[in-house]
């Protein structure tokens, strides 16, 4: 019996399982017009330097880490340190060079402009 206990303990002490911060999907609004796609993402408490936006091969990955700086003993805690993570599939027609991101009041606004070729074009009808 004691042999089995030791076996279990050994597996528990392996260092790979040390990640503590829970990962959470942030809430997102997605808008589109003729020129661009626009994302509004709630990331309360995330500092600009802890925010990452990666676009690669049609995958847009948003990540942000929140570290709370607190003082004193906790009376109650409804939110804590968190890692916001969310991935989207974006069409290849997004002009990755011109992506623009701004962070204000804990909301990330991400402008994803469409490339010229993908924009709808008005075709003029000529009178014969």
């Amino acid at each position: 019996m004691s042999d089995t206990k030791e076996l279990v303990k050994r597996e528990e002490s392996l260092p790979e399982r040390s990640r503590e911060i829970p990962a959470v999907a942030p809430l997102v609004d997605i808008y589109e017009n003729d020129d661009e796609n626009l994302l509004h993402v709630d990331m309360p408490g995330v500092d600009k330097k802890d925010l990452t936006v990666n676009i690669d091969n049609g995958r847009l990955a948003l990540g942000g880490v929140r570290k709370l700086e607190t003082s004193g003993a906790t009376q109650w805690e409804e939110f804590g340190d968190v890692e916001f993570q969310r991935t989207f599939s974006v069409p290849q027609t997004i002009d990755a060079e011109k992506i623009d991101a701004e962070l204000k009041d804990g909301v990330l606004r991400l402008h994803l402009p469409k490339s010229e070729a993908a924009k709808p074009r008005q075709i003029e009808i000529k009178a014969a």
Partner: peptide
């Protein structure tokens, strides 16, 4: 909204999530 409360002896500190609110 979610709120945390901390007691630092001389003062209380409250933190709350208010994203996108002016």
């Amino acid at each position: 909204f979610k709120a945390n409360l901390y007691d630092a002896g001389d003062y209380l500190e409250m933190k709350a999530e208010v994203p996108g609110i002016a």
